[in-house]
């Protein structure tokens, strides 16, 4: 298993498939790099080099006590890109991973970056605050932390269900897929999941967005239950200097799975342009 030793001794797991122009994927809370399997399989077979890490505290990476904030996540990503010395990278971030790649550009610049894709992303800000009324009320995150502390495994089972849910009675998800998401979520640490909720809720990426000089593709499920479209993508599309917005009608948060073909095509088209 390739592991990168980070500045604080934390070992970061990543996988590195195929050859070609690099595409780097940043996963969502509280899963791991395996969530990208459909996209990585597809793009690697189309002649791209695809790389996905497990964020610190999640998946197969180490579970240190601290470092669960977006500056630290962005610095971990910077170390990975430097280590592999990647150029002309397409950064693809999902949910809190969208925040991670956005903060990366804001903090480390776009020297290595060709373009950015944000899927179901928490940008420009997920949590509500006085200066960001569109956001999700803070009590929602209190409830998430409470649920994790009370019975993490059971809470994450519910999370997995909502991951695929749009509220239509046509929702269909296989037991296997639910189990897969649940399993990925359980692999992370309680501390990482707990602290990352706060990071997701409170980090404001508007200054990072202001520093963007690369094209951005924003993709969002219209009926995302965790990262509501109105709270995030709708605002983000208006803030990025050069953004294209694609809204998947009647789609849940988990479009990586439920809309994988459509998503793969949109990714390929944007990267090949």
């Amino acid at each position: 298993m390739p592991m990168l030793n980070l500045r604080d001794g934390t070992r970061l797991y990543y996988k590195d498939w195929g050859q070609g122009e690099p595409v780097v994927f940043a996963h969502g809370w509280p899963l791991n790099g395996d969530m990208w399997e459909n996209q990585m399989m597809f793009l690697a077979s189309k002649g791209y080099r695809v790389i996905a890490h497990d964020r610190r505290g999640f998946g197969r990476s180490d579970q240190p006590w601290d470092g669960y904030n977006h500056n630290s996540f962005a610095d971990d990503l910077a170390e990975l890109l430097d280590h592999l010395d990647l150029r002309n990278v397409t950064l693809v971030g999902y949910a809190m991973g969208g925040g991670e790649v956005t903060r990366y550009v804001g903090r480390h610049g776009s020297a290595r970056v060709a373009r950015v894709v944000l899927i179901g992303s928490t940008t420009p800000k997920l949590g509500q605050s006085e200066d960001y009324p569109h956001g999700v009320p803070q009590v929602v995150f209190d409830n998430v932390r409470g649920g994790l502390m009370e019975d993490r495994a059971e809470f994450l089972r519910g999370f997995a269900r909502l991951f695929f849910s749009t509220g239509n009675d046509t929702d269909e998800v296989s037991e296997g897929r639910l189990a897969h998401v649940h399993h990925m979520a359980l692999q992370g640490s309680l501390k990482a999941a707990h602290d990352a909720v706060t990071a997701c809720a409170e980090t404001d990426y508007r200054d990072d967005i202001g520093r963007f000089d690369v094209p951005v593709l924003v993709i969002h499920g219209e009926r995302d239950a965790f990262v509501p479209f109105n709270a995030t993508a709708r605002q983000a599309a208006a803030l990025f200097p050069n953004a294209t917005l694609k809204v998947y009608a009647d789609a849940p948060h988990g479009i990586l799975f439920t809309h994988k073909d459509q998503l793969n095509q949109d990714l390929l088209q944007f990267i090949a342009d």
């Binding site: 999700v136 009320p137 009590v139 929602v140 409830n143 998430v144 649920g147 059971e154 809470f155 994450l156 089972r157 519910g158 999370f159 269900r161 909502l162 239950a225 965790f226 509501p228």
Partner: peptide, 8 residues
């Protein structure tokens, strides 16, 4: 209404 992440 509370946009809960687990609606059990």
């Amino acid at each position: 209404d509370a946009q809960c992440w687990n609606r059990a």
